[in-house]
Nucleic acid binder design. Structure first.
Lengths: 202, 202
DNA sequence: GCTTTTGCACTGACCAGTCAGTTCAAAAAA
DNA sequence: TTTTTTGAACTGACTGGTCAGTGCAAAAGC
């Protein structure tokens, strides 16, 4: 049972890997199950042995990917806490963690952004849940920062969290798509400056 | 001749209107030409009488929409200039203009974000051009701000522009999708605070 | 001896694009 | 003025192709 379930896990991983790239490039509807199977080096029947449908494969992929992102944001936040840093430092660390994630899994990020605000889709509810997990990590850090008096009491936590996530997401995707020559440190520096309010004179 | 060309324009407008909503909701591939025609109250043949293909309809829609956005950003920048405001004030006005645009055309914004970072798509080149127009407006204001000494010389213009655009885009879409109860002023205030660096103590 | 994977033929729904034909307002003819 | 003609705009049934999902017997792995 144990060895056979790792075997299943391996084919699932191959299918995720294949699906994420294809769907990021072409979108969900334009990507065929035959393509996914071929890219994964697996028979079409295997896709349906492992997943109920194309949609279910995609939903599990979303859960899987956002799980990774959330964990890595949380880890960055905990790391700052452990070192006794400020919450601004924690946010800075999370920006970097976000960039590293996007750098490693650009296709997933692309796909996530493309699907997030669609309405009337089968996986809408899955996305809502999964988005909330990720944003909640940022909101928590903001809330703790306000409580400790490190952040202004007047900030609007949900909106600021959304704006910060957006800033990182879009800057990173733009970097990947249109400004490949820049280093991760360049991007991090630019975002960090914005976070610290060092754009205007101040 | 005159009345017939306005008739054409009217059907084209109806088709844009129908297509933008459907594609924003479902994506390009998942939206059928039959659906677009039905929503527009027009026969399928009419779509093909007015546009070479489904893709061409979509490309013209992109050009049309980003044209509107660029114009409204530029207008906000000019308005600040006319009043002799600082470049930070200009950026603030552009943030508001962006929010107003997204509030009025949420479907278009959704669709733009969903398609922007896809690779291997037929309209890729159209999108590149059109994105550059929009980002260039922001970059110009940043550059002028640095020249005048109002903004730090150390900011990275292309990356900061991308980050600002992303901040507005994502915060606004999140507002529309998940935080409907907030007012445009709330969202503007939150973003403005981030722009002015009033999140941390400073 | 189970679970898992393969290979492949098949079905039925769906859909982009076509095309022969219709509509109608305005120009030309009577 | 009335009648006829013209052609741009529009219509919707139809076609050829594509694709999600099925079924199943045989092989491979554990």
């Amino acid at each position: 049972m144990n060895s056979s379930s790792t075997r299943r896990q391996a084919t699932r991983a191959k299918l995720y890997e294949a699906a994420v790239t294809l769907i990021a490039e072409q979108g969900f509807s334009a990507t065929t199950v035959d393509e996914i199977a071929e890219r994964a080096g697996v028979a079409k029947g295997t896709v349906y042995y492992n997943f109920k449908s194309k949609t279910e494969l995609f939903e599990e992929l979303l859960r899987f990917g956002v799980g990774l992102l959330t964990a890595s944001l949380q880890e960055a936040a905990d790391e700052a806490e452990r070192r006794g840093g400020t919450k601004i430092e924690a946010l800075d660390g999370m920006i970097r963690a976000g960039l590293v994630f996007i750098d490693r899994y650009p296709a997933f990020t692309q796909l996530y952004v493309a699907e997030l605000w669609r309405t009337n889709r089968a996986w809408q509810s899955t996305l809502m849940v999964v988005r909330q997990q990720a944003v909640a990590v940022v909101e928590t850090v903001l809330r703790e920062g306000v409580e400790r008096g490190e952040l202004s009491e007047e900030i609007d936590i949900p909106l600021t969290a959304a704006a910060l996530v957006g800033m990182v997401l879009v800057a990173a995707l733009d970097w990947q798509a249109f400004q490949r020559e820049r280093s991760l440190d360049d991007v991090h520096a630019a975002l960090s400056r914005l976070l610290h309010g060092r754009v205007g004179g101040c």
